[in-house]
Every structure is written in structure tokens, then in C-alpha cells.
């Protein structure tokens, strides 16, 4: 029984961390219409940033600054923001393909640099991270439960922040730019500046998710920032419903459950010679999920609720 519960806590922790990343993507894609092809780069920048700033010193590695945990987490988010700002500044004015290609490129470059630079952990990744409050809470179930509560609080905070944001004038502006950029510009708004703000904000949220992920495993390696994570995060948003924060969270839990269940089923029931191809089979499935959703239900399971205008709503 305790095994089942502790597994559920483990599952819910990872799903909640991923939900935060999906919420960040929803701000960029769902609300602003920005295509981010390299979610892992921002997720990874947050993860590496947190571990480097908050870790204990390791021979031959950058970092080990041993900052207090919350400061390290914040630093990781800032790292993700800086990467996003540079990429955004160069591409956000150009036609949308450029942002898609450049973000995809930054993810490839990020993984390559992390894999090859020994000072940043190299292929072995970064360890040497002291999990916060480990001495008080121990290493067992209590710790995992406490960490889950911590992640859950951050997830709720992110959710409430984004809900407030999209209902604010700024949120209306984002949707206005998404729907008709020229019209927004004619009202004296600056679409490229607003889009850059939204892109950086979304990436900072992904950085938070990355920082939490690295804290949870107390370890990060290039293996954790492979392009497949970008696919998974998108599939979660598309299935849930782009533009709807509730849908984004539901989609995350659904897809992550399907992913882990299919991985478990394949390893449990598939013949041994098939098991080598477990990854390939799962990738094909997630590819079909993305394409199928776009073909048959592009608005997702929980579509965005479109408000025509404030005055139209109040008349009802």
C-alpha cells in the first residue's frame, strides 16, 4: 500500500513539474501564438542554472556556489530568461518560421555544449547537489511528500498568476496580437515588444520547471534535455487544449500517465526482442497523438473559452 502511495506521489511530482513547463508553453503558444521549438533549452537552462548555483563544489566543474536553495532556483529561472531574451531579440521581428527554427537550433546547441563541456558536467552531467532541507526531513517518503507539496504550491501559484495575467489588459493585448497583429499595431501597441515579453516570461516559467526537475533528481545530464521532452510537452498542451490553462494541466497528467503506462506495459508484456524498440514505439505513438489531434480536434480536449468582449458578456 505504502509502495502504491509513494509511487503516486512520485508520479504526481513529475507530472506537476511538467505541468509548470506546459503552462509556460501555453503562455507563448496558446496565448501569444509564438512557436517554441526548443522547450528543452529553457527547461535545461533552469535545471543547470539551479544546480550550478546551488550545488557543492566539484573538481573541474564550474559552480558549486552553494547559494541558498530559493536563490539558486531564482538564478536558474534568470538563466532561462537570458537565453530566451537573446533568441527572442534576434527572431521575434521576423516571420514566424525563424523563431521555430532558431528555438529548435538553440535546443540542439544547448545539448551539444552541455555534453561536450567538462566544466558544465559533460556527458556525465552534474551531481554534487545537496537537496534542500534533507537533514530535517530525511531521505525517505516524508521528504518526497514535502517536496510534492512544495511543487504543488508552485504549480498553483503559476496557474493563478497566468490566469490573472490573461484576464488583465496585458492578456487581452496578447490575444489581440495573436489574432491580428496589424490591428493591434494600429491601436498604438508594439507587437514585437509584447511578444518578446511573453516569450521571455514563458521561458522563465519553463526554467522554474527545469530547476524543480533537477532538484527532484538532484542530478541533471544532457540525457534529460533531449528533443523528445519538447515533443512530450507539446503533446500535453495540444491534447489539453492550447489557450486554456486548466486544459494544459489536465493534458499534462493525461499524457504523462499514458506515456509511463505504455512504457510499463511494453516492458512488462512485450517480448524481449521488442523491448529494445520500446522508445521507438512510444515515439511513433506520440507522433500519432500530435498529428491526430491536429487533424480531428485541433482545439484540444478542453478548448479555450473565447470571450467576445467585456460589454457583450455583461449584457447577458
Amino acid at each position: 500500500m505504502i509502495g502504491v502511495i509513494s509511487y503516486l506521489v512520485f508520479f504526481a511530482t513529475v507530472a506537476s513539474i511538467l505541468s509548470i513547463a506546459v503552462l509556460g508553453l501555453n503562455l507563448q503558444w496558446g496565448n501569444t501564438g509564438l512557436f517554441n521549438g526548443g522547450v528543452v533549452a529553457f527547461f535545461g537552462a533552469g535545471a543547470y542554472g539551479t544546480l550550478i548555483l546551488g550545488g557543492t563544489p566539484q573538481a573541474g566543474q564550474l559552480g558549486g556556489f552553494g547559494l541558498p536553495y530559493l536563490l539558486a532556483l531564482l538564478g536558474g529561472m534568470i538563466c532561462a530568461g537570458i537565453v530566451a531574451w537573446i533568441v527572442g531579440l534576434l527572431t521575434i521581428r521576423l516571420r514566424h518560421d525563424y523563431l521555430a527554427i532558431a528555438t529548435f537550433g538553440v535546443a540542439v546547441a544547448f545539448e551539444t555544449v552541455m555534453r561536450n563541456t567538462d566544466a558544465l558536467g559533460g556527458a556525465q552531467g552534474i551531481r554534487g547537489f545537496e537537496r534542500p532541507l534533507r537533514e530535517t526531513l530525511g531521505n525517505g517518503f516524508t521528504y518526497n511528500l514535502a517536496f510534492f507539496v512544495f511543487v504543488l504550491i508552485l504549480l498553483i501559484a503559476t496557474y493563478l498568476f497566468l490566469e490573472r495575467l490573461i484576464q488583465s489588459p496585458f492578456g487581452r493585448l496578447l490575444r489581440a496580437i495573436r489574432e491580428d497583429e496589424t490591428a493591434a499595431q494600429s491601436l498604438g501597441k508594439s507587437p514585437s515588444r509584447i511578444r518578446l515579453t511573453s516569450f521571455v516570461a514563458g521561458s522563465v516559467i519553463m526554467g522554474l520547471a527545469g530547476g524543480l526537475y533537477a532538484t527532484f533528481y538532484a542530478f541533471i545530464s544532457p540525457q534529460d534535455v533531449l528533443p523528445i521532452l519538447t515533443f512530450q510537452i507539446w503533446a500535453m498542451l495540444i491534447v489539453g487544449g492550447a489557450g486554456n490553462n486548466k486544459g494544459a494541466v489536465m493534458g499534462t497528467f493525461l499524457i504523462w500517465a499514458a506515456w509511463t503506462a505504455s512504457g510499463w506495459a511494453l516492458s512488462r508484456f512485450a517480448p524481449l526482442e521488442v523491448q529494445l524498440y520500446t522508445g521507438s514505439i512510444q515515439f511513433v505513438l506520440i507522433g500519432f497523438v500530435i498529428v491526430g489531434m491536429l487533424l480531428w480536434r485541433p482545439q484540444g480536449l478542453f478548448p479555450e473559452k473565447l470571450v467576445v468582449s467585456q460589454s457583450a458578456r455583461s449584457k447577458k
Partner: peptide, 26 residues
């Protein structure tokens, strides 16, 4: 939706790449 096309192309790439892997081995 031009951007849905980009999404779709990622999905298609995923499917083709891994089906080739399944047929011809890794």
C-alpha cells in the same frame, strides 16, 4: 493556421523516423 503545420511536421518527422528505425533496426 500556419503554425499548426509546423506542429504537424514535427509529428510526421517523429513517426517517419521511428518507423524506419522499427523496420530497419537502429
Amino acid at each position: 493556421g500556419e503554425l499548426s503545420m509546423v506542429f504537424a511536421s514535427f509529428g510526421v518527422a517523429m513517426i517517419i523516423r521511428n518507423i524506419l528505425g522499427l523496420i530497419f533496426g537502429l
